[in-house]
Amino acid sequence: MGPLIPNGVIPYEWDNIIAILIGIAFGFVLEASGFSSSRKLSGVFYGYDFAVLKVFFTAALVAVIGVYYMDYLGFLDVNQLYVHPTYLWGAIIGGIIMGVGFVAGGFCPGTSLCAVAIGKIDAIVYVGGIMIGIFIFSELYPLFQPIYEGYFYGNVTLEDSLGINPYWFVFIFSIIAIVAFVISDMVQKRVKKIFY
C-alpha cells in the first residue's frame, strides 16, 4: 500500500501541500518543546539540558519502530522508501562545519527559522549567517565540486554496509537510546543548574 505518493494513493501533485502541512506541524512541535531557545539547544553540549538529545532520539526510535511494524503488517514497503545518497567526505566535512556552527550559534538551521518566527534577534543574525554561507558556497562551487560530488557510495543504509539484521538493529538502537537517556539524566544532575 504505502508509501502513499509513489504508489499513487495520493496524487503526485499533492506533495507540496502535504509538505507545508507537515512543516507547520514540525515547526509547532519544535517551538512547543522549547527548541527555539539557543540556550536549550546548546545545553546538550554543556551538559545542563539534554532535551535535544531526548527529543531527537525518541523521534527516531518511534519512527523506526513504527516503520518496521508497518512494513511487517504490509502497510508500507521499506524498500520503496527514499534513502539519502552517501557522499562520504562531503558529509563528514559538512557535519563538522555544521557542528561548530551549532555549538557556536546555538541553533540548527531548522530551529533557527523557528526562532526567527517568534522574533529572536540572535536567530535573525544566525539566519543571515546561513545566507552568507550559502552565497559563499555557491560562488566557490567549482572549487568544492570534487568533494561535493565525489566519494559517492550510493543510497546505502546501515543494513547494506554492516550486513546487520534491521530488526536487531532497531532493538539495539532502542537500548542504546534508553541508556543514553539514563546517562544524560545522571550528567544533568551533576552539572550546576543553569536557569534560562
Partner: peptide
C-alpha cells in the same frame, strides 16, 4: 538517475 535530494538540518 536518482534525483539528488537536499537534506537540511
Amino acid at each position: 538517475k536518482k534525483a539528488p535530494a537536499e537534506g537540511g538540518c
